[in-house]
Amino acid sequence: MTFSLVARCDETGMFGVAISSSSPAVAARCAYARAGVGAVASQNVTDPTLGPMALDLMESGMGAAEAVDEVRRRGRFIDYRQVLAVDGQGRTAIHSGPNSLGIWTQAEGPNVASGGNLLANDGVPQAIVDGFLAASGHLGDRLIAAMRAGLSAGGEAGPVHSAGMMLVDKVPWPVADLRCDWTEDCPIEAVATTWDIYKPQLDAYVQRALDPRAAPSYGAPGDE
């Protein structure tokens, strides 16, 4: 009931996750990223401990493949889980348990991995990877393009209702964590609209946290 991708920007080192599902608030349970370390999606009968576990393992020095192998070894009911990871060198790894739901499959490319379950067809993850690799610009733009490509290729077998996108860069918090937790319309387009608004302000929000004296105006009534 989910399709997603994890990705790394080869130019900036930024990591990102984008995900969509028929379930509510999918990004709150399934998207994980850590600046300088990597990005992970943990999905399909979700175990929210697996994303932080994989990031901890990569931070300790493991590559994506080693980390996912260790998650496979340590995780409970791992045959029901999907875990996607990308590490600091752009290497990727995916675990898809045999008890993943419905049509499930996965695909990988340079700096990007995609997987899904309860899909409309088995070509969706490859379409997501191809969409990411074909896109240009900011990592957030490329993630949105990839998710749109996955949806155009069929997406989930039923309608999706939630989506999210997380980006991490050089600070120890997400520089963007955008979500649509439920809609009867397209949640990917809801996140895309929010990204269009948020993207021009992203650097300013980071600057306000690091040194508000050098931050631009908030643009709120009464702000000088």
Rank of each mutant, 00 (worst) to 15 (best):
L5M: 08
T12P: 09
V17N: 14
A18F: 09
A18G: 14
A18S: 14
S21C: 10
P24R: 13
V26M: 08
R29A: 15
C30Q: 14
C30F: 05
R34W: 06
A35C: 11
A41C: 14
T49K: 10
M58V: 11
E70T: 06
R74F: 02
R74A: 14
Y80K: 03
A85W: 00
G90S: 02
T92H: 07
I94P: 03
G97D: 02
L101D: 03
G102D: 02
G102K: 03
A107E: 06
N117Y: 04
L119N: 08
G123V: 00
I128N: 05
V129T: 04
L133C: 10
G137A: 08
H138L: 05
A149F: 00
S152I: 00
G155H: 00
E156I: 00
M165E: 13
L167V: 13
V171I: 14
V171L: 08
L178A: 06
C180V: 15
T183V: 07
V191Y: 09
A192K: 07
A192E: 08
T193G: 07
T194I: 05
I197T: 07
I197S: 08
Q201C: 08
L202Y: 05
V206Y: 12
Q207C: 13
R213C: 05
A220W: 11
E224Y: 11
E224C: 10
